[in-house]
Simulated assay, not measured.
Amino acid sequence: MPKEGKGTDLVFKAMADQNRRKVLDLLFTKNGQTLTQLCEQLDMQRQSATQHIEILIKANLVTVVWRGREKLHFINPVPIYEVYARWVRKFEQNRLGFLHDLKTQIEGDNHGTT
């Protein structure tokens, strides 16, 4: 079983805040936005938005690419997938296994055919 690390803690902390989740949603909808573009869609001051984005960057959920003098923000879905793989998928597999077993019991050995 994989060992939890500081990176996972940062991801959970970053995603715990609704404002940071909104930033991720905005980047999912339109990746590669500037801070100005993001601020236009957020109900907060530029300084607050910057602080939230910095937390997302430290958690590796957002990456920055400079294009000339523009600083573009891109979502990085890998840490979210890692959380899914570690914490969600194993529970999903149990549920799907249960549903498969229930289906087999209801339909019997003939798999629903007569």
Rank of each mutant, 00 (worst) to 15 (best):
P79Y: 09
R89T: 00
F91C: 03
W66I: 10
V11H: 10
G108E: 03
V88S: 03
L35Q: 11
K30M: 08
R69Q: 12
V65K: 08
D43M: 03
A85T: 10
T63G: 14
K6Q: 09
N31T: 06
Q37N: 05
V64F: 01
T50D: 02
L27P: 07
I55V: 15
L27R: 13
L27A: 07
R21N: 12
Q105T: 01
G32F: 04
N31C: 05
M15W: 02
F91I: 04
K90Q: 13
N110A: 04
G32S: 09
Q47F: 09
T63I: 14
L102A: 14
Q47E: 10
Q33H: 03
V64M: 14
G68E: 06
A14E: 03
R95T: 07
C39L: 08
G112V: 05
L61T: 06
H100M: 06
H100P: 00
I80S: 15
I75N: 02
T34W: 07
Y84L: 10
Q45L: 08
F28K: 10
L35V: 07
Q47D: 12
T50W: 05
W87G: 02
T63S: 09
L61A: 04
L99I: 11
L38T: 00
R67E: 13
R89G: 01
Y84R: 02
K13Q: 15
L96Q: 09
Y84E: 04
G97Q: 08
E92V: 15
K103M: 12
T36R: 13
V65S: 08
L99D: 02
Q105P: 00
Q45Y: 02
D17W: 00
T36K: 14
D25K: 07
D9L: 13
Q105Y: 05
T104Y: 08
Y84V: 12
G112S: 06
N60R: 11
T113F: 11
K6I: 07
H100N: 08
L61R: 06
K103C: 07
H52C: 13
Q105G: 00
E54L: 12
V65F: 03
Q33S: 06
Q37S: 10
V83P: 00
V65G: 01
E54P: 00
H111R: 07
V11P: 13
Y81D: 13
A16N: 11
F12H: 11
W66K: 15
Y84T: 06
E54S: 12
M15F: 11
T50A: 11
V83I: 15
H73W: 04
L24T: 05
F12E: 06
T104F: 01
R21H: 08
H100F: 05
L24E: 07
E92M: 03
L24S: 10
D17Y: 10
G112N: 06
L96Y: 10
K90N: 10
D25P: 00
Q51V: 14
S48I: 13
D17S: 06
E92N: 04
F98H: 05
Q105C: 02
I57L: 01
R86Q: 13
F28C: 09
F98K: 07
F12M: 10
K71E: 15
I75P: 03
K22P: 05
R69D: 14
C39T: 13
E54Y: 10
W66H: 14
Q47T: 14
